[in-house]
Computed example of a mutant assay.
Amino acid sequence: MVRNVHERIVPAPVEQVGPLLDRIGGPDDLLWPAPGWRPMVLDGPVAVGTAGGHGSIRYRVTGHEPGRRVAFEFEPGQGIDGRHEISAEPAGPGRTRLRHVAEAELSGVMRLAWPLAIRWAHDAVLEELLDNAERAVGVGPARPYRRSAWVRLLRAVEVPRARPVPPARTPLVAGALPRVDWTDAYAVEAFPGTPRDPQAWADAVFRDPPRWVLAALGLRELLVGLVGIDRGGAGAFDTVARTEDEVLLGADANHLDFRVSVRREPERVVLTTVVQLHNRRGRAYSALVRPVHPIVVRAMLDRAARTLSSGWKAVDTAARMR
């Protein structure tokens, strides 16, 4: 039997803290530490029978006292048979005890996964959730939770990876170049809480790439001038057009023109590249670059996803008053 307990005294009255429980798993949830972790999503407002979960862990609401308690039961077949509950109760004048308890029997691979990985991630999520409770009522936290090296490693493994997808067929992409000699596209899952602005994603992808990509681009700049190919320069990834959910970047050169579309969709970000070749130098350069292009793009998208989903949820005054 596993029994795991997290609690904190929040220096605010239960009338202020308790209603946060009724928003958990919904679009205005201020407790769950997203985008720092895969979001907790319920299929409706908190009520008995509402189902959902986070990642592969699924559960159903089995008890609800508004402003005081939400109880969940794990769905069968996951190797974890039991329940978890979050509650708020008065702990003195102007103080609330916020408490989460999980009790379950483990079976199958969960007997190994829990002590090695899931328990550590679970503990981190709950401590960050309690930090968010203090943020939401404007009182702290005085000592924010700090992830251990092991938790940071687990978190890095959880971040989604870019994968190939069909190129975007949007007006920006369709009108990007007079002719397209080759194109490809990659997408990465966008956790709730990550920026909706595609420019923020474009900046994360192209202004802060992995160090090895920076080194490769630097070497490219040194070598291409020797064979009469334009160097990219600082403006190689400037935005040339945009809509509400998409930005188009790119540059023209003597050997080829390229455009890159970064499109923010509801649950993912799609990066589409289109290229027009001009001459033999362009075709030769493309033959060298195209095999490594997917590796570079996926690495840049992966890093952007890690960067933009690495923080805790920001809770501002307007959100607290809704």
Rank of each mutant, 00 (worst) to 15 (best):
G52H: 08
S56H: 12
A117M: 14
R111H: 00
H100V: 06
L98G: 08
S56N: 06
G53W: 07
E103W: 02
A102L: 12
E103Y: 00
P76F: 02
E73Q: 14
A113V: 09
I80K: 04
G94D: 07
F72W: 13
A121H: 01
E85R: 14
W114P: 11
V101T: 14
S107P: 02
G94R: 07
G67T: 07
E103N: 05
G67E: 07
R58T: 06
E89I: 00
Y59N: 14
F72C: 11
A88Q: 05
P76E: 05
V61Q: 10
V109Q: 07
H84M: 09
R99Q: 13
A71N: 04
A117W: 13
R83S: 14
S56K: 03
G92I: 02
I57H: 06
I57D: 01
L98V: 15
M110F: 12
D81S: 07
A91D: 12
R97H: 10
I118V: 15
I80P: 00
R111D: 01
E103Q: 13
F72S: 02
R97L: 15
A113R: 05
A71Y: 00
G63M: 11
V101F: 07
V109R: 13
H100W: 13
W114R: 11
P115Y: 10
A91T: 00
Y59F: 15
G67Y: 10
H64Q: 10
G79A: 04
T50K: 00
E65H: 12
A113S: 05
V101Q: 10
W120A: 14
I57Y: 04
V70W: 13
V61N: 08
V61I: 15
G77W: 07
G67M: 12
V70C: 09
G55N: 06
A102Y: 01
R60D: 07
R60L: 13
L98M: 15
G82D: 02
A121E: 13
R111N: 01
R68M: 04
Q78D: 03
L106D: 11
L116Y: 06
H100Y: 07
A113E: 03
T62W: 05
I80C: 08
G94S: 10
R68L: 06
A104Y: 11
L98S: 05
S56E: 06
A88D: 04
R69D: 10
T96S: 10
G108L: 09
H64G: 06
A71S: 15
R58L: 09
Y59R: 06
P93W: 01
V109N: 01
W120N: 02
I57L: 13
R83G: 08
R68A: 15
E65K: 10
Q78G: 08
R119G: 08
R111G: 05
R58G: 02
A104H: 08
E103M: 03
A91F: 05
G67L: 08
R60N: 07
G52C: 03
A51V: 13
S56C: 00
R60Q: 15
G63I: 07
G77E: 05
W114N: 09
G63N: 08
H122E: 11
G67N: 08
A71Q: 13
E85L: 14
M110S: 13
P93S: 11
V61H: 11
T62M: 12
Q78N: 07
E103T: 12
M110K: 01
R119Y: 06
T62V: 15
P93I: 01
P90V: 05
G82Y: 02
A91R: 03
W114H: 12
P66T: 11
G52D: 04
P76V: 02
S107W: 03
S107L: 02
H54V: 00
R95H: 12
